[in-house]
Design a protein around this nucleic acid. Sequence first.
DNA 1: CCCGCATTCTGCAACGATGTAGCTGAGAGG
DNA 2: CCTCTCAGCTACATCGTTGCAGAATGCGGG
Lengths: 359, 359
Amino acid sequence: MAVTMNDVARAAGVSLKTVSNVLNNYEFIRPATRQKVLDAIAELGYEANLTARSLRSGKSRMLGLVVSDLSVPYYAELASKLMTAAAARDYRVVVEQSAATRTSELTALQGSLSQLTDGLLFTPLVLDADAVAAARRGTKPLVMLGEHIDDPRFDQVTMKNVGAAKAMTAHLLAGGRRRIAVIGASPGDRAGSPGLRLTGYREALAEAGLDFDPALIVPAEWRRDGGASAVARLLKGGQPFDAVFGLNDALALGAMHELLLRGVRVPEGAAVAGFDDIDEARFSSPSLTTVAPGMNEIAERSVQLLIDRIEGSEKAAFGVHVEAEFELRIRASAPAGGVSQLPQTGTSTASAAEGKVDP
Amino acid sequence: MAVTMNDVARAAGVSLKTVSNVLNNYEFIRPATRQKVLDAIAELGYEANLTARSLRSGKSRMLGLVVSDLSVPYYAELASKLMTAAAARDYRVVVEQSAATRTSELTALQGSLSQLTDGLLFTPLVLDADAVAAARRGTKPLVMLGEHIDDPRFDQVTMKNVGAAKAMTAHLLAGGRRRIAVIGASPGDRAGSPGLRLTGYREALAEAGLDFDPALIVPAEWRRDGGASAVARLLKGGQPFDAVFGLNDALALGAMHELLLRGVRVPEGAAVAGFDDIDEARFSSPSLTTVAPGMNEIAERSVQLLIDRIEGSEKAAFGVHVEAEFELRIRASAPAGGVSQLPQTGTSTASAAEGKVDP
DNA sequence: CCCGCATTCTGCAACGATGTAGCTGAGAGG
DNA sequence: CCTCTCAGCTACATCGTTGCAGAATGCGGG
């Protein structure tokens, strides 16, 4: 059916192996021979059979990506950028959804995804470091994304959670906010994305000489509805607050939705800040102040690191850890400047506040 | 390195081919033999080499999905559901981003994605039917998603664009709106998603005995910023309007953002409606009235149709066309009931309006 | 008692590429 | 003039599986 190397070899009057050598840029081939082969390839429209190549060579030039749910905007944007980064290096990305369950995270690490690909980009949500290490014994390269696991055994690309959360909290404090509710963590969290971001929050409070109030820390599923119901609980609890820091944008957007619904103005009644800078954050009403965690850098670095491992050019015996740089995106939901400077009347997205929006 | 069929055969004391037969559920194998083989498989932890299987059998149990950009929420949600539907049938989905350019759509149709997979789910944005037909001559099954192409040669799964847009327009009319701006189409569009949805709009106007005013039709890129700038132009143009119908949710959300920014209340000043029912629509402020186009049905049906073609169980010589059922999701941005019933004061998401939100 | 057929299993070739080894001829060196 | 080296090519085995052909066994029917 399809054109094979054999057909090309016959057409060019050389051996099959010479065609292979041309395709693999083998050094010692006379220019004339190379040209004959290339002409035959062009004439017949030959394309290498990737499956056969993969069987023989043991490499597929495919990377696996494991995320819990591709419809979550953060993961969708990450996947998109990872695919672009991989494509630029002539690799393809195959995505698998783990639904954040233990069994499917394990299947992703050990099952057919792992077999089909040359290495994995893995966003663990439930497995711990030992479970991953056990599951991956003697298998292909693995780069961890996110911070659920932080272990020197693994290569890892992450964001500056503590620093970014601290900077965002400092921004809210600089705006005159004194009772900043945090949505998406438990007061005792120290590790993982919730714990690290909460740590940054605590550090900023401490530097400002403010006490940490556990009553302001509201656990929630990291989804829009989680943010909404957390705000509902917060309001019902009667704790006063003047700002809400959603530990990701979905939480923050859900929280903002609920605040507005209940007549709390944003940012006049309560400022709202998020984390991730998903595209949606620029276009919410009011637009969302958030942390841009350097997703481009994360995508580029993690793909590069994984490919370096696959191709053997990264030789570090220990896990390489990369932290991407972050930036604050100050928008209308928590503008710069003190509370007193905010307009006390007008619609919720008054132009004085919106004027601070970044481009 | 890895355990092969040969190892299993030796351990079970049968021929390699018998192991293959067991794995492929060949009929004539004694239960005792089958059990021996299964025991050996379990003991050695054998897993079939998918690459070798794929080379030999010509099937990979992978489906290709081509979308322009996976970070667009609609495509991300679609991809997620398609993956789930495929996984339930023991197929995997490989996504490729086409960036909506002619060359990359062609590469997706003919290049390595097509070679690696057993069939393609394709969302064309620039290629026309003839170009696709030419590119796919004599290749693997292809199912079209979306309505950019509508051609009897192709299998296609789509949504009820005309009917849904008509129903949504009728809903806005029933709410007392009389000058409904449409964002994301040109007045003359007849085909493709913009044209079909615009047709539905015109039909609803006609049934209500209203004239079609081309000045209310504003072209825009189908993104949030496109919706925002379209509203800016609309307002600058001075055309009065009392509702905005964004032809997808991104447009509608961008439009709503811009309206609120400029002090137009939603829905009091202008109702806003969208199309797609992405997750975000439920949590915008105010929540977005939109069309749920039956994405679950689209995902299930298109995966099933493609697999039926691959496995030969769908034999129709002509293209099979499937239309998913839609539903209106009436939320706060364009609630049910007449304009006069809306509260004339209070915050933009007054509870009277929000009370109509579906669960 | 033998034939025919269903059942159960085996062996070989093949899918389309790459790795390894080896062959050939030309030029360098003695 | 003979050996040695190495560029440039060919031949064969191999990756791990499945398709095809066929061998061996048992059983029922004529």
